[in-house]
Structure formats: structure tokens, C-alpha cells
Design a protein around this nucleic acid. Sequence first.
DNA 1: GCCGTTTTCGGCCCGACTGTTTTCAGTCG
Length: 589
Amino acid sequence: MSRLTNKDVAAQLRLIGDILQIKGENRFRVLAFHNAAESIENLGQDIYAIHRVGALTEIPGVGKSIAEDIAQLLDAGRIEFLEQLKQEVPLGVVEMMKVPGVGPKKAARLWRELGVTDIESLKAAAEAQKLRGLKGFGAKTEEKILKGIELLQSRKEERIPLAAARPAALEVVAALRAILPKTTLVQIEPAGSVRRWKETIGDLDILAASPDPDAVTQAFRSLDLVTEVLWSGRTKSRVRLINGLECDLRVVEPRHWGAALQYFTGSKEHGVAMRELALKQGWSLNEYGLTATGQGDAAVGEQRFFEREEDVYHFLGLDWIPPELRENRGEIEAAQAHRLPRLITQADLQGELHGHSDWSDGRLSIEAMAEAARKRGYRYWLLSDHSAGLGMVGGLDAARVREQAEIVRRLNQRWAEQGVDFRLLHGIEVEIMADGRLGLPDEILAELDVVVASIHSSLRQDRETITTRCLKALENPHVDILGHPTGRLLGQRPPTELDVEVVLQACAAYGVVVEINANPARLDLNDVHARRAVELGCKIAISTDAHSAEDLDLMPYGVATARRAWLTPDDVINTRPLEEMLTLLRNRR
DNA sequence: GCCGTTTTCGGCCCGACTGTTTTCAGTCG
């Protein structure tokens, strides 16, 4: 039996919830399965490890019953309850819920009343205009479903990388600011997962505050960036942008701004937890503000509005929670106890510890890259070109490394003479070869300031092989940093099978620093794993892995990932002054 | 099915928009 990931387990539980939903089961029972699935996906630890110590019920949202289902799945490869459910409802009917506008109720009726069992037969039925015969279904619903199927089948990736979505959201914001006067457009900001800096984005959410919502909605609908208005109401509308992204705009009155921004930033799970917390204090929380339920001290119906978001949190007894933390992973409890971490910021960084020149696959000379780093305010930058042992790009052999050393020495000498406070560190991104040996001999590695070790090839090795390979590399005392540990490329290449938990434990034990690769296509480690790494005692380096000067500007994505992982400046070594940072590396043994 | 500053029962977040319903259910986020 192949090993399951947390995501696989979550998918099975979610499927149970979906089938129950189609069967019309109690919605809270459905919710329980969906909540448990969400919770397992957000877990920093491998679910097998939790199961091994019998701690499944300690996972939030997992009780006795769901714990038994998970145990069955991990031990026997199948959940008996799910197998029964699959006998009752065809999987194609569950799939039908992916079509926009088709939920559990419609899917169930299409199946029972028309005999439609999957998306293909749904399409055929809609084309034959059979849907409009059903009570509650009309011609518009039929068209909407056909269009939805087309959209679904044309779309390859459901979510796009933040680096593509964020500029698009900012562009919409800038375009509206350019058209509307400040008196009409009092506030406007991207909300949703863009504001939380989530690594991938489903659609864009933008929030505006205005005394004249119609004017803002009108301007939004007629932007040049908009190709299609999907629907549009009094305060809320959805369009498709020229880049294919869907974008929602919500307009509220200025006095509602604080509550609305809290509401539309999400995540859904954070929002639900916040509204539950408010209820306990006798207030119902929505996007407009708080309304007293009569269960607390305030009189029923009493309302509170907030022009600033922080005041919503403060009113409920919480410190303001940075958007990056809003995933219901303990941030509300921490804010209540006034124990939120002092999150790292870009300004805390003093240098970078992973980058390339034209000696391997970078675009610029060593000097140009170093100057680009210096211009961005860094005090040090690590030149770490690829080593030999990596077939696809011209990796450096021992002789070339020594040639580089001379160039680095001369550049540093020149800056020193000019009184420039900048140091070019000489390192390598040494290849961890398929058998775990490194791409350069130890005596060369010993001559370098910092060694980053990474995997770029034989990415499809099985879990045990690639984990053992990585552990072997970590044992080498010259390895300082483990680069982009899982090798994933968002939307292009899945992570390797690497047992991240075991590797992080080894990094903690050996004192190897773990990288958060800031390139938005990588973000590797991701937020959940980075948080786990620090829990296990690892230190982190955040680096862009720059191959050009512009790549250096990708750092905000790495910082955001670190913030989503709850990291403080203390957890990250490149917040330290040069000598202190180097001492940390050298003292690891 | 889960959970506990209403703790082993009785709750479980909230509202906008659409389509087709003449008063609201379904979907979505």
C-alpha cells in the first residue's frame, strides 16, 4: 500500500462529507467531516506520526468516530464507511458539485430525477434542454450550468500563484483610485487570500468604502481590465479580468470599513472562529459590525461600528492579528493571551544566503549581482552557484570554485578600501546527488564561507530513498543550509516524497539551517513546514535564490511565508549582522 | 460528528446575489 499524505487523508474525509451532503444528511455532520479535513491539511506533522502515538483525537475537529475512520484508512488503506457511501452515490454526482452553480441539492435532484451520473451526462442533458423541465430549474440555470462545465474543462489550474494574483489586485485598486475622487472612494484595499499572502489564490477580493456604492460598482464594471461582468448587485459584483482571473468587489459605507475588512480578509476558518468568539461575548459579528444578542451586558440590538480594523479585535479583547496569521491555527488564542509573535519584516533582513551568477545559470556577473544586492540595502550576499554533479547547467568544479574565490577576494578588498559596508560571501549550491554524495569534495567545501546543499535531480525517488539521500548529505559537516527542501514548483511540479518531519529533525540535531526559498514558484519550505521546523528547533534562512537582479525583489514572498509560519527575527539567521550569522553557522558542531 | 468561560446536551457564523419561488431556497465565499 502506498503511503498517504495528509492531503490524501483530508480528501477522503472531504469526500465523505460531500456524499453525506448529497444524501441530504444533517448539515452539521457534514460540517464535521469538512472541518476535520481542513484541520488535517493544516497540520504541520505527518498524520502517520500522530496515529502511531495514538493522538488522532487531539487534532482539532477529530473526535472518536472520525479518528477511527482515519485509523482504518492508514492501517488498511480504506474507510469502510466511505466504501458503503460510494455504493449509494456515484462519484460522478459528487464531481458535479465542482460545476459553478451546482451544489449538493441540485446535484442530488439531477441525479435522482434525470438519471444524470457525471459531468458528461449532465452536459448532454443540459444541451438537450432537459434541465428546464425540472421544478426550480429554468433556461438560465441550464445555460449557467453549460457555461460552468465549459469553464471547468478549460481551466487547468484552479489556483494561481500569489505572484501573479497580487499585482493584478493592486492594478485594479490603482485603476479605481485613478478614476474616482477620494470623496467617493474613501478606502480601497485587496482583501481575501491576497491580503493574507497565501501562496496560491483562487480569485481576487477587493474591498472599498464609499458613501456612494453605485458609483464605485459602476466604475469597477467598466474598467478596461474587465472583460466580462459575471454578476453585479447593489454592493457586490464579480467580474472576469483580462488575465482570466475572477475578481469580486464589495463596497461598504466608511463607518463599516473596520468590520468589513476583518470579514473579507478571512480566512473562512478564522472568520468563523471570530464570530463564535463574539457570540460568546454576547455579540453577533458580521461585515457591518457587532450587534448585541442580549446574552451579554449590552441591550439587545445595540450596535457597534468600527472605522478601523484593529478596533474590532480590541473590542473583543484581542490584540490585532496580522492577516498572514489568520488561518485559525491558534492565532486567536494567542491574541487573547497577548502572546502573538513579533513577526519578521523585510526591514529585519541584513543579507541573503542563496544566489547565482553567470558562472552557472544566473544572468549577471558576480560583481553585478553583488552590487544589486548591496543597492537593496543588504550588508552581505552569498554567491552560491551550482556545483558539478548537476547535469543540466554548467555546474562548477573545484578549479572553477577556486577561480571564483579570487574574484570574490578582490571585490571584497575593493569595497573594504572604499569603506563600503558590504561583504560578498563565497559559497556554493552543492548538488545532493542521487546517492546522497555531494557534487564537490569536502576539501573544496571546507574553503567556502557557506555551503547550501540542494536536490535538483532524481526527484521521483521513493520516500525512503530520497529521505535517506537527504539525511546522508546533512551528515556532512560542511553543509550549512538545506536549500528548497521539497523541490516543488507551484502549479508545475509536486514536492518530492521527502519525509519532511524526519529531515527537519535531522536539521535540528545537526544544526543545519533550513531555507525558505522566497521565489514565489517555490516558497519551499512552505508556511506549515517552516513553522514545524522552528518548533523542532531549526533556524531558518530566507533567500530569493536570485538568478537576476530583479529576482532579488521577490523577497517579500519569502518574508510573507515566514510570517505565515509565525517566525520572529530571532528564528531567521539572515536577520543577524554578518559576524554573528557566520558564528552561528560555524559553531554548529 | 464535534465540542465545552451556557461542559455530556444542545448547540453548531453570516449575509449577498440569483433564479424562479409570488416569499424563498440554493449557492457561494
